[in-house]
């Protein structure tokens, strides 16, 4: 509860800070809209040449893009400002400041800062999802529920995986995992079915981008008949697993940093 209040305050302070720079806000939102338009245009180009992309019809691919944008927005707002370039924070002493605070360091370091400029992307992604829902056929209430559950699971998984990657900095301070993450993340804009089978496995189990976009969109557009439920259960399980792993890795990392094991 208190953690939620801290999170709320962090957000309020950041929003207050950004509203002071209205020009930056306008430019960011404009760039986001252009970026989104470019993504939609690219999808349009693809569908001038084909009727389905790896079995996905245009409205379905649009839903996938929407889910991807939505989670990307959340990632860039709440997670990346904390965990990108985390190794520098470890070597630069920022970690010390957090360790001194009487709040769980896991929480403060992975969610203690945010970048509200990225929030409009969440809305844009949501709008795309709605558009896709209207354009698609046979969207059911069950599908929508499955999609929402999977999106939530996707966000948790993203957070956990990002923490896991960041904790690598405790063992290899020269290695910056943001690299692989941001690159792999981009692969999420298309159905995982278009990639080579090996890459597809990677995207499902190692950097689970599939949970972020492909599965929620699948649940939404084809979620009738229990597929949504099945995917939802899978997502919830994966989210719990990832979160547990992240917590353990974090504790081990902090123990190593403070010298408790050496």
């Amino acid at each position: 509860m208190r953690l939620l209040r801290i999170l709320g305050r962090v957000l309020a302070l950041s929003v207050q800070r950004e509203l002071a720079h209205r020009v930056n806000l306008t430019i960011s939102v404009t760039m986001m809209v252009i970026d989104l338009a470019a993504s939609v245009a690219t999808l349009g180009l693809v569908f001038t040449q084909t009727a389905t992309l790896a079995g996905w019809r245009p409205a379905e691919a649009l839903a996938l893009l929407g889910a991807f944008q939505l989670v990307t927005g959340l990632l860039n707002t709440f997670i990346e400002p904390n965990l990108a370039w985390f190794a520098e924070k470890v070597t630069g002493g920022r970690l010390d400041d957090t360790l001194l605070q009487p709040v769980p360091s896991f929480f403060m370091l992975s969610l203690g800062a945010c970048q509200p400029l990225a929030l409009p992307r969440v809305l844009l992604g949501g709008a795309l999802l709605v558009w896709a829902t209207v354009a698609g056929e046979g969207v059911t209430a069950l599908g929508v529920a499955g999609c929402v559950a999977l999106l939530a699971a996707g966000v948790v998984i993203t957070w956990a995986v990002r923490v896991l990657l960041a904790t690598l900095a405790f063992w290899a301070p020269g290695f910056e995992p943001s690299v692989l993450f941001s690159a792999f993340w981009q692969l999420g804009r298309y159905p995982v079915g278009v990639y080579h089978p090996v890459v597809r496995q990677l995207l499902t189990y190692v950097v689970p981008v599939a949970f972020v976009a492909t599965f929620p969109a699948e649940a939404l557009m084809r979620g009738g008949g229990g597929l949504g439920l099945g995917l939802g259960a899978l997502g919830a399980g994966a989210a719990l697993l990832a979160l547990g792993a992240a917590g353990l890795a974090w504790r081990a990392g902090v123990r190593r940093y403070t010298g408790a094991t050496s």
Partner: peptide, 10 residues
């Protein structure tokens, strides 16, 4: 990504 997508399409 372009390689993957366009190889799937065409």
């Amino acid at each position: 990504v372009g390689l993957a997508v366009w190889s799937t399409v065409l």
